[in-house]
Design a protein around this nucleic acid. Structure first.
Length: 267
DNA sequence: ATGGTAGCCGCGCTA
């Protein structure tokens, strides 16, 4: 079985690319982030005609997550329990479409779009850390309930766990950028301490292996990327991972998302 | 060249 995660940066703008990639990659399950649409604008037929069931969670033009599967899609859950909400200046906090879970052929998969954080001292950064802490507490409890559960936490983590996961750590520190701070990395490591491992990195050793390249400053052309998309697997699932890869080719050419798909292959 | 792209219920906001 093959499972992929991909921040498509608009499902409608990327529809042709996604369809072509499903055929090319032959994945069984795809966790999608940043669909940037609500249900009524989601291209349901695209998945149906390619043999995938699909569940989508989107409120507006922001965020939006989905799971497509051709090996079953049950127990769909939109948002995790007590998922933190966000409101600017602390006002009118609303829950955002950043997490959807489903069971696909025995694997409990979550498609996650972790809040960006925006800047080091922004209230959005506090939201990001709160959001991660809440998710981690639940993930921990799922594993405590069933230590043999096959759980994949897949998506755009918006965190570069190690210095090698960005093109120039000095640039990030000099400019006080996000995704690399101690607080963000600690939040990520708490998942690892809870028993979830990054099953992609061992198969895609760095430096220089990235999943995201900013459109601005033409970072892809300059080979200046970040590795912020990955799959964190529970012990039982991690034991099944045979291979993993980043499909960097998908970032090339006109009409590419700023993220590349990340695939894991299970026994 | 002190920058600059891409997407959206767009003429600002998010990334």
């Amino acid at each position: 079985m093959r499972i992929a995660t991909w921040n498509v940066n608009s499902m409608r703008a990327r529809a042709d690319r996604v369809e072509a990639w499903l055929e090319k990659s032959d994945v069984d399950v795809l966790a999608i982030q940043e669909t940037k649409c609500k249900d009524e604008n989601f291209p349901w037929e695209l998945f149906e005609r390619n043999g995938y069931e699909v569940a989508h969670f989107g409120f507006s033009q922001w965020n939006g997550v989905a799971i497509a599967s051709r090996v079953g899609l049950t127990e769909v859950e939109r948002a995790f329990p007590d998922q933190p909400a966000f409101g600017k200046n602390g006002k009118d906090p609303v829950e955002e479409a950043r997490a959807i879970g489903a069971t696909c052929n025995g694997v409990r998969l979550w498609s996650l779009y972790v809040p960006n954080g925006r800047s080091r001292h922004d209230e959005h950064m506090e939201y990001k850390l709160r959001w991660l802490r809440q998710l981690r507490e639940h993930a921990q409890s799922w594993l405590a309930e069933d230590p043999h559960a096959q759980i994949a936490l897949a998506g755009d983590w918006n965190i570069a766990p190690e210095d090698d996961d960005v093109w120039d750590i000095d640039f990030f520190e000099r400019n006080q950028l996000t995704h690399v701070t101690a607080a963000e990395r600690e939040a990520f490591q708490e998942f690892v301490q809870a028993g979830f491992t990054d099953v992609v990195r061992p198969h895609t050793p760095g430096p220089g292996v990235y999943t995201f390249w900013e459109y601005t400053s033409l970072r892809f052309q300059k080979r200046q990327g970040m590795r912020i998309d990955c799959h964190l697997a529970s012990p039982a699932l991690a034991a099944r991972v045979r291979h993993a890869y980043v499909d960097k080719d998908e970032r090339r050419g006109k009409g590419a998302s700023d993220h590349a798909p990340v695939v894991i292959e299970l026994s």
